[in-house]
Computed example of a mutant assay.
Amino acid sequence: MKYYILQILSKIPVLKILVETRKSQTPVRLRHLLQYITKSKVYWPVHHSSLVSSPEKIVIGIDVSPGYMPGCYIQGGGGIVIGDYTQISCNVGIISRNHDVFDISRHVDTEFPSIKIGKYCWIGMNVTILPGVQIPDYCVIGAGAVVTKSVQKMGSVLVGNPAKVIKILDVDKVKDFKSEFEYVGFIPSASFEKYRKRELKL
């Protein structure tokens, strides 16, 4: 019965994504799709307990959904770029701009560059990433870490507050897995560049 339901859904263009992402790390559910169709500005699936601000300044990669897990705060005002297949756990904070220390009613936009997180990274539970941080490909950030400074080497493993590199992985051993159907949020990857130029400001 389930097979026939999937076959029917795959024939309906607007619902095809439900079938094609079901085996990905961030499968699109009907509730996500309804949220997007009803004019949500966030172009990827987000858990109802997570908060995303300024999504127009956030560029995500294939099969990446910051805030898909519960309790996340993704603050995009200063710009965030996340590479393909990076996994983000629960209660993660990615903070791309700070308040002005002399006037906390406003943010400082020019103090830091955009946050950049590479592809195939793994960001553990309760991690906080602060403005201007650059994280290269294949990095692992352990649960509870507070990343205050940029990381230099691919495959770095970070833990602690402030986060420090405790190990460098052999990136040649890391598996670059790919989804059968590639989506950037709700958008087929082949169409994303056109969407980015039209809708995003980063």
Rank of each mutant, 00 (worst) to 15 (best):
L200Q: 07
F192T: 09
K194V: 13
G155K: 00
F192A: 09
L169C: 13
E199R: 12
V151L: 06
G155D: 00
S179N: 14
L200D: 10
F181T: 09
F177K: 12
S189P: 09
V133G: 04
P188H: 06
L200V: 04
A143Y: 12
R198F: 13
I123D: 03
Y138F: 15
F186G: 05
E193Q: 15
D170W: 04
T128R: 09
P131G: 06
L169G: 03
P188C: 06
G160M: 02
Y138K: 11
A145Y: 03
W122Y: 12
W122V: 06
I168G: 01
D170I: 11
D137R: 09
F181C: 13
Y120A: 03
K167E: 09
V151P: 02
G118T: 00
G160V: 06
A190Y: 10
K197S: 14
L158D: 01
D176R: 12
Y120P: 04
S189N: 14
A163G: 10
I187F: 15
G185H: 02
D137H: 06
D176I: 07
Q134L: 08
K167R: 15
V151D: 03
F181N: 15
K164A: 14
M125R: 11
I141R: 07
G155F: 01
I123P: 06
D172A: 11
R198I: 10
D172I: 02
G132T: 03
F192R: 07
W122E: 09
F186W: 05
K149R: 15
V157Q: 00
K119R: 15
Y195R: 11
V127K: 05
K178S: 14
I168L: 15
C139R: 00
N161C: 14
L130W: 04
V171E: 02
M125N: 14
I123T: 06
S150R: 01
K167Q: 12
Y195G: 13
A143G: 10
S189D: 14
Y138L: 08
F181M: 12
V184Y: 10
V140E: 01
L130Y: 07
K167F: 14
P136K: 07
M154Q: 15
A190I: 12
E199G: 08
V174I: 15
K153Y: 08
C121I: 00
G118L: 03
M125S: 15
S189Q: 13
Y195I: 13
V127Y: 03
D137V: 09
C139K: 00
D137L: 08
I187P: 05
